[in-house]
């Protein structure tokens, strides 16, 4: 066990954890940030996606000891009040069904739009190819990402 300092959503936290504990479980079990979801634990579904210094990362595959000074952003910290263009587009396009994978989809979209505000279909395909939505909201994910990009 060791003590780790993390910056999550702009706040500093100290957690005592095993060095190999994935960030996902730090967020969920220790910091009570349950917006990032457990879907597979092997980096195959994207439900746990967060941003590390603005880049997409699967929090089930990043250990707490590897975070260092990188700033962690979770769905809870994407905006103060749900006003990120993707969050608004998600509601407008009524994307969620069960909603469980949606935080991961939105965070992936946020990383994409940060790099490229007007992604092509092929870039959207590349970004979301490893984000499983078991309810099949893909059509609306695509529509919402495009709409949010257009507004950025």
């Amino acid at each position: 066990m060791a003590l780790y300092k993390l910056n999550v959503n702009g706040s500093d936290h100290s957690v005592e954890a095993l060095p190999d504990m994935p960030l996902l479980w730090v967020l969920r079990d220790m910091l009570d940030l349950t917006g990032s979801k457990f879907g597979c634990g092997i980096g195959a579904c994207g439900a746990c996606t967060v941003l590390l210094d603005g880049a997409e990362a699967q929090s089930c595959q990043v250990t707490v000891s590897a975070i260092g000074k990188k700033k962690v952003t979770t769905i809870e910290g994407l905006s103060k009040d749900g006003s990120h263009p993707l969050q608004k587009a998600w509601i407008e396009h009524d994307v969620p069904q069960c909603g469980y994978c949606q935080a991961g989809q939105i965070m992936a979209g946020a990383a994409l739009l940060h790099k490229n505000p007007h992604p092509t279909d092929a870039e959207i395909d590349d970004t979301f190819a490893f984000h499983v939505c078991r309810c099949g909201t893909y059509q609306r994910v695509r529509d919402a990402v495009k709409a949010a990009g257009a507004k950025k």
């Binding site: 457990f38 809870e76 749900g82 509601i91 469980y100």
Partner: peptide
């Protein structure tokens, strides 16, 4: 109508069993 749970889902507040 859009889903009643959307605002909570897109901000990570929606509560599932695992949460």
């Amino acid at each position: 109508a859009t889903r009643v749970d959307n605002p909570d889902v897109v901000t990570g507040k929606a509560m599932y069993g695992l949460d």
